[in-house]
């Protein structure tokens, strides 16, 4: 096998049977261990945008932390976590994070308050012509030239967000994690963000787009991984989200689709189980209309259905 084609086919990020557990030193908890992510599988290739969609508390942000290696010390990860075909060890992570793997954070506080924005963008660049490169990328994201001489506090929220995106664009990162990068912005600004992120993928970068907002996810991504109570219940293609969700595989994904205001706005009783409320069966079973005895007793394994992944006995 020739080396070049093999790296072409190797996915950027490959996660299999990944779990994340917290130890608690609280005495009033019966369970000293809390599993917040279990049996997580995902594969992201170059030029691909994978949205990870889930409610708050589903553990989706912890996933980003796990990849970046910034989990608290009382967390234990198990399973396979490969970057470009090789395990993402502590040592490799130090080498890769901030260089090949980059985070577009939710909080605008991530910008250094004491450094001019132009300089901040230049720090992630390599080689010569940094200044020209930075100017070019500012033009690309629609920031006027004088912004590079301003400090973060002088920028509006929208402009600061563009600086963060510009940083990801000029870096030679191959894999980008955007964690709730589009919270509560108006439709116009959202449209711009979507364009910029698609641009990143067109340059061959792989993007993991973490969000709670299925609508934005569908605008941005090629594939959507749906997260529920720490598990990927389904990985669907964007086209699967249509009509009343007949082509969707998992009952939760269907419910999510039909709860959108422009669809049925159909609510669902109950709530997502908290990390310590999970039973031994399927996590969605208490809210599922199609649940049977087997759903109570066993966790469904992941299966391939209609060119997508699903974790449900009845799909």
């Amino acid at each position: 096998m020739n080396l070049i084609s093999s790296t072409r086919n190797t996915p950027l990020l490959e996660v299999k049977n990944f779990s994340l557990t917290f130890h608690s030193d609280r005495k009033d908890r019966q369970e000293p261990l809390t599993q917040v992510i279990r049996q997580f599988d995902i594969t992201i290739r170059e030029g691909e945008i994978m949205a990870v969609v889930g409610a708050s508390g589903s553990g989706k942000s912890l996933l980003a932390d796990a990849i970046l290696g910034i989990l608290p010390e009382n967390a234990t990860c198990k399973g396979m976590l490969h970057y470009k075909g090789e395990p993402l060890t502590e040592k490799r992570r130090k080498h890769l994070c901030g260089d090949q793997i980059m985070l577009i954070p939710q909080s605008l506080n991530a910008l250094d308050p004491l450094m001019k924005t132009g300089k901040q963008v230049q720090t992630v660049m390599k080689g010569k012509g940094k200044k020209d490169g930075q100017r070019a990328v500012f033009r690309k994201v629609g920031l006027p030239d004088h912004v590079s001489n301003q400090y973060p506090f002088e920028l509006s929220g929208g402009m600061a967000r563009r600086v963060l995106i510009a940083t990801a664009m000029v870096s030679n990162a191959h894999f980008i994690i955007a964690d709730e990068a589009t919270p509560g912005i108006d439709p116009h600004a959202l449209g711009e963000m979507v364009t910029f992120i698609k641009h990143l993928a067109m340059e061959g970068k792989g993007v993991m787009f973490i969000t709670h907002d299925i609508e934005t996810a569908l605008q941005v991504a090629d594939k959507v991984a749906v997260f529920y109570a720490g598990e990927t219940v389904e990985i669907a293609n964007v086209e699967d989200f249509s009509g009343t969700g007949e082509t969707l595989r998992h009952p939760y994904t269907k419910a999510l689709w039909n709860s959108l205001p422009q669809n049925g706005f159909v609510p669902l009783e109950g709530h997502q189980p908290l990390a310590d409320e999970k039973g031994k069966g399927c996590a969605f079973q208490p809210r599922c209309q199609r649940a049977t005895d087997i759903c109570l007793q066993k966790q469904p394994e992941s299966r391939i259905v209609k060119a997508g992944m699903v974790r449900c006995f009845h799909a």
């Binding site: 030193d25 912890l62 608290p72 954070p105 910008l111 940083t167």
Partner: peptide, 18 residues
Amino acid sequence: MSMQRIDAYATPTKSNRS
């Protein structure tokens, strides 16, 4: 760029505990 995040799950870490 800072890569820290305060998460709802964050509990005292090991060194903290000792």
